[in-house]
Each structure stands twice: as C-alpha cells, then as structure tokens.
Simulated assay, not measured.
Amino acid sequence: MVDFFIGVCELSKSFIFAAAKKIKMAKKNQKKAPEVEYELLEKPEEIAGRLERGEAFVKKNSKIFGGILVAGILLIAAVLYFQIDKQNKDKKAQAEMFQAVYYFEQDSTDYALNGDGSNAGFLKIVDQYSGTNSANLAHFYIGSIYLSEGNHQKAVDHLKKFSAGDYFVQARAFALLGDAYMELGNTKEAISNYKKAVDHKENKHFAPRYLSKLAIAYEEAGELDNAIKTWGTIEDKYFESFEFTNARKHKARLEGLASK
C-alpha cells in the first residue's frame, strides 16, 4: 500500500514538473515576440532611412506618377463626357423618332423608313444617333418593315442589332428573326431563334404562338420527333390557347407520318 502511494506521488510530481516546464517555455516565447515586433520602433534611424528611400523613389519617378494621375483624370472626364453626350443624343433621337413611329403605326412604311422631308425616318436615326437607345429601338422597327416587304436579309441584319430589356419586345424580335430565316431557307437559325422566343421569360399568351412556329420549322427541317414534341407541349401546357386545336391536329398528323 505504501509502495502504491509513493508511486502515485512520484507520478504526480513528474506531471507537475512537466506542466511547469511547458508554462515556463510559453512565457519565454511570449517575451520574444514583442521584442521582434517592436524591434523596428527601437531603431528610429532605420525608420528615417526607409522614409528617405521612399521619398527619393517618389521624386525619381514623379513624372511617371504624374502621368498616371493625369491619365486617370482624363479617363474619368472622357467617360463622363461620353455618358452626357449619349444622353443628349438620345433625347434628340427620341424627339425625331416620334413621327417615324406614327408613320409605322399608320402602315406608311416608306415615310417611317426614310422620313417625310421634314422629319427623320428610322434609317437616318440609326445612322445619326448610333449607340443610343432610340437607335437600338429603330433597328427593331426597320427589321419589322423589311420583313413585311420581303427584304428578308435586311430584316435579319437589323433585327440582330436589336436588344431589349422588355421581354415582350425581345421575344418578339427573336420570333421575327426566326420568320426571316425561314423565308431565307435557313431552318437551323429559324429553329434557334424560335426557341429563344419561347424560352425568353416564357409567357402563356405568346409562347403557344412561338411554339407553333418552332414546330413548323422542325417539320420543315425533317425533325418530325421534335415537331411532335413541340405540338405536344402546346397540347399539355396551353390547352386554353388559340393554338391548342391546331396543335392536336398537327400532332396527330405527324404521328401518323412517323408511324409509316
């Protein structure tokens, strides 16, 4: 029993000794860190030397720094000027575009495109006010007019330059591009643009119409399975649409052809 007690005491002593040794080493390390950290502060001549070298470097490269500063100022000024100039141009373009839009709505397409002698048409607006929101919208109108007149390649050229945040108008532009490509016999691009029209923030009122165009394009390209699937989408999802009856009819017809 005595031996056991002595053994426990010896073991406890060794644990206590080891713990004390670790604490002593930790304190020793903690003392060294501040010495390293504040070593530079204890040498003011070193700080002064570094400041002098930094000042000399700036003086030596003052022209470079000055050039960078001037270039930055000029860049900011150019960006501001461009934005203000673009806004001013856009206001003028909107004012001139008013009459052209009126002619477009009245089906006076020649005046809408070329102007009436007093007011600018869409073609002049896209040329004179390039890069503005009004010129962007004018491309949509021009493409629509050319498509209605049978100038399909010109319609493609202008509609491809148009982009809009309004998803109704953008989807319509994709569909018109699809129509133009179909007329040009390019079913691959027609399919691509009809799919964009369908997928661009899908709308229950317009999607069935675009799906119908897509199905016709698939059939024209000989892709009967995709055409059947597309008509089926109208049948399943848009049963209240005007296109529903035609979808059922054409789906049944194509299924008959596919089974032969």
Score class of each variant (00 low, 15 high):
94 Q>R: 12
90 D>S: 10
144 S>A: 13
170 Q>P: 03
149 E>W: 09
89 K>Y: 05
152 H>T: 15
72 G>Q: 07
71 A>S: 15
89 K>E: 08
153 Q>K: 15
182 M>P: 00
117 G>A: 14
110 D>G: 09
88 N>M: 13
114 N>W: 10
129 Y>I: 03
150 G>C: 07
175 A>K: 11
83 Q>C: 03
70 V>H: 11
182 M>L: 13
139 H>M: 04
122 F>K: 01
79 V>Y: 10
115 G>K: 05
94 Q>P: 00
96 E>T: 00
178 G>T: 09
173 A>R: 02
117 G>Q: 15
137 L>D: 07
96 E>H: 04
103 Y>K: 12
169 V>I: 14
122 F>M: 10
84 I>T: 14
72 G>E: 09
124 K>N: 14
94 Q>K: 12
155 A>L: 07
112 A>M: 03
146 Y>F: 14
99 Q>A: 12
89 K>C: 07
158 H>G: 06
139 H>C: 05
139 H>P: 01
140 F>R: 09
71 A>F: 13
140 F>M: 07
83 Q>Y: 08
169 V>Q: 11
176 L>M: 15
167 Y>V: 08
90 D>Q: 12
123 L>W: 06
169 V>C: 01
149 E>P: 00
99 Q>R: 14
82 F>Y: 14
140 F>L: 13
140 F>P: 07
116 D>M: 15
126 V>Y: 03
75 L>A: 15
149 E>F: 03
166 D>P: 01
121 G>V: 04
113 L>W: 07
168 F>K: 08
162 F>G: 02
151 N>Y: 08
96 E>R: 05
79 V>A: 13
83 Q>I: 10
148 S>F: 06
68 I>F: 03
132 T>I: 01
129 Y>C: 01
72 G>Y: 05
153 Q>V: 14
180 A>M: 06
81 Y>K: 15
121 G>K: 04
87 Q>G: 10
78 A>N: 13
169 V>D: 10
77 A>Q: 12
171 A>R: 04
174 F>M: 03
148 S>K: 13
95 A>V: 12
123 L>A: 06
73 I>E: 06
108 S>T: 02
127 D>P: 00
142 I>M: 01
147 L>W: 02
108 S>G: 00
89 K>R: 14
140 F>D: 04
128 Q>H: 06
81 Y>V: 15
134 S>P: 01
162 F>L: 09
112 A>T: 02
73 I>G: 04
133 N>C: 00
143 G>M: 05
154 K>R: 12
94 Q>I: 05
170 Q>D: 06
74 L>T: 09
141 Y>Q: 00
72 G>V: 07
153 Q>L: 14
121 G>P: 03
120 A>H: 09
107 D>H: 13
156 V>G: 02
122 F>I: 04
141 Y>W: 02
110 D>S: 13
110 D>W: 11
149 E>M: 06
161 K>W: 02
87 Q>S: 09
